[in-house]
Simulated scan of single mutants.
Amino acid sequence: MTLSEQPRVLKHQVVRSQLEELLADLVEGDPFPAERDLAESFSVSRETVRQALRELLLDGRIERRGRMTVVAGPKIRQPLSIGSYTEAARERGMETSRILVGWKRLTADAVLADRLAIAIGDPVIQLERVFTTDKVRVALERTRLPAYRYPDLEADFEVTSSLYAEFRRRGVRFGRTEDTIETTLPDAREAALLHVDARTPMFLLNRLSYDKDNTPIEYRRSLYRGDRMAFTQTMYAD
């Protein structure tokens, strides 16, 4: 048995090619034709159009705004680094902000105590915020911090600003991070906070940060929209 040299072209891929031709004549923010109108125009089923639109959505070519579909701008390219997302985006001329979801006071269970190098039952501060770039909600971040390191954080910290800048103000210096990146889908609450469809692909970044004395600084869970974000990293040979 041999593989065909010419892969099979699926119907929705043909439709996608036609949709890309439409996109070539549109600019960011322009409304995109409705699924029903596209199906009639191309004489295909709405399911075929839906598959093609889904691929364009995943690639960040279009985006949902309420019940409308519009042409999307370029994906935000975020370098993988220890630094602040807010500061990096602003250096590239983007308008960024944070929307407070809420503060919580937790007590450490066995897993969290191990990650933050504290005792079971010790107090933990949880900060949850939505990140916006150019007024678009692009990420949801939940940070858990050992309370003993950050007295009066809730009162002192301006939640629309960089948490990493607050760390520096308090004399905390990063030594290293351990990052894990996976793909996932948002749950209903996360999708609502990010104003996206529950089928929108996400990058899930879990980060455990340490200072120069190898003491944990934070345990962070960040959910980034896969249709609006891309991550980059520069690597060098030995």
Results as ranks from 00 to 15, higher is better:
48 T>E: 05
13 Q>G: 14
25 D>V: 15
84 S>R: 04
77 R>W: 14
231 F>C: 01
97 S>G: 10
26 L>T: 09
91 E>H: 09
74 P>I: 03
31 P>Q: 13
89 A>V: 06
195 H>Q: 09
151 P>Y: 04
43 S>E: 07
135 K>H: 11
218 E>S: 07
51 Q>S: 09
12 H>L: 11
118 I>Y: 00
163 L>G: 01
64 R>C: 10
134 D>S: 00
10 L>G: 06
195 H>Y: 09
9 V>A: 07
185 L>V: 02
53 L>S: 04
59 D>H: 08
51 Q>P: 09
177 T>K: 06
122 D>I: 00
14 V>W: 07
202 M>F: 05
41 S>V: 08
7 P>A: 06
125 I>D: 02
207 R>T: 08
131 F>G: 09
12 H>A: 10
131 F>N: 10
189 R>I: 07
180 T>S: 15
29 G>N: 03
11 K>E: 14
124 V>G: 01
30 D>F: 01
192 A>R: 15
235 M>L: 12
115 R>Q: 00
119 A>N: 03
28 E>A: 08
116 L>C: 00
143 T>S: 04
44 V>C: 15
18 Q>E: 14
181 I>D: 02
137 R>N: 05
180 T>A: 07
79 P>C: 08
31 P>H: 05
154 E>D: 01
231 F>Y: 06
53 L>D: 09
133 T>R: 09
67 R>H: 12
80 L>W: 01
211 D>C: 02
94 M>T: 02
39 A>I: 03
113 A>C: 01
1 M>E: 14
179 D>T: 02
24 A>N: 06
24 A>M: 14
204 L>H: 08
139 A>C: 07
159 V>A: 06
210 Y>T: 14
46 R>Q: 05
141 E>F: 11
32 F>R: 09
42 F>E: 10
116 L>F: 01
183 T>R: 11
220 R>W: 03
149 R>F: 13
130 V>G: 00
46 R>L: 07
44 V>F: 12
182 E>Q: 15
153 L>M: 12
171 G>M: 02
183 T>M: 11
52 A>V: 02
60 G>V: 01
64 R>G: 11
220 R>L: 15
89 A>L: 12
20 E>S: 03
174 F>H: 06
61 R>E: 11
76 I>G: 12
28 E>H: 11
19 L>E: 06
145 L>H: 04
35 E>H: 11
69 T>L: 08
152 D>G: 14
100 L>Q: 06
9 V>E: 09
199 R>L: 11
236 Y>Q: 15
161 S>Y: 15
50 R>C: 11
74 P>K: 05
198 A>F: 14
62 I>Y: 08
110 A>Q: 01
16 R>C: 09
64 R>W: 03
149 R>K: 07
81 S>N: 08
233 Q>V: 12
171 G>H: 00
178 E>N: 14
169 R>N: 07
68 M>Y: 15
99 I>C: 13
4 S>D: 04
70 V>F: 09
125 I>Q: 10
79 P>M: 05
153 L>Y: 02
170 R>Q: 02
55 E>H: 08
86 T>L: 15
2 T>Y: 08
124 V>Q: 02
138 V>I: 13
98 R>A: 15
79 P>H: 06
219 Y>Q: 02
4 S>H: 04
219 Y>M: 03
72 A>S: 13
47 E>K: 14
78 Q>V: 13
